[in-house]
């Protein structure tokens, strides 16, 4: 282990879907206290890149490293320190928000008592629907439950795919504040979004996915 400082880096990453190459030669290093905003049009490979970073899928070439170690060799540590929210919320419709948070924590090998779970949910403005099954919640509310479980995970690295989808104005502001607090506290975040997100004051770097030539051709 050459370095144990928390860094996420990827080297010469290439991603293909079937015959088509989405991107290649992607390099980046993200350190504590930084956020990475991934930009690119629809179908340019933003989600594919995020899935490569979570370790859910494997790159065609290149590698992703966490703390300087290749992902497949450190997956246990990595998955303990990383939290991911994709297009799907990953919450169970038949359980209440509290039960959902506690189930997620148990699966991750942590304990979370009811009061802690409740605090998180109230923090995200879900105080009124604590004991309703998630099935009856609105899309935005379910998104908030997923974000609450992100907070409960105490993860160092957040990987968020379109986190703003479905959130109202207050929700967006809430998430911006959470992200700022997370990054300023030394955490890391990788996110994609099409909506404007204001994270002034925090250390934000951006990365474009897909070649600009392709983008201009398409438009």
């Amino acid at each position: 282990m050459s370095e144990s400082v928390a860094t996420l880096s990827f080297h010469d990453l290439r991603c293909t879907r079937g015959e088509r190459e989405l991107f290649s030669g992607m390099n980046f290093t993200l350190q504590g206290g930084e956020a990475l905003l991934i930009q690119g049009g629809n179908g340019q490979g933003k989600t594919s890149l995020l899935r490569l970073l979570t370790g859910l899928s494997q790159p065609a070439e290149g590698e992703v490293r966490w703390r300087g170690v290749k992902l497949d060799k450190t997956s246990e540590t990595y998955h303990r320190e990383m939290a991911y929210i994709g297009h799907l919320n990953g919450i169970k419709d038949d359980l209440t928000p509290i039960e959902n948070l506690r189930l997620a924590s148990q699966l991750a090998g942590r304990t979370l008592n009811e009061t802690q779970a409740e605090e998180r949910l109230v923090q995200l403005g879900l105080g009124r629907c604590l004991d309703l099954p998630c099935r009856v919640l609105s899309f935005g509310q379910r998104r908030r439950v997923a974000l609450a479980s992100l907070l409960c995970s105490n993860a160092l690295l957040w990987i968020l795919d379109e986190p703003l989808t479905g959130l109202d104005v207050h929700g967006v502001a809430l998430l911006e504040n959470l992200l700022k607090a997370h990054i300023d506290g030394g955490g890391m975040a990788v996110l994609t979004t099409h909506q404007p997100i204001s994270l002034e004051g925090s250390n934000i770097r951006t990365l474009h996915v897909g070649s600009p030539a392709q983008t201009s051709l398409a438009s």
């Binding site: 859910l56 998955h79 990383m82 799907l88 990953g90």
Partner: peptide, 11 residues
């Protein structure tokens, strides 16, 4: 509902 992804991402 995406919980399978989350389960695979647990330690």
């Amino acid at each position: 509902d995406g919980s399978l992804e989350q389960m695979l991402l647990t330690p």
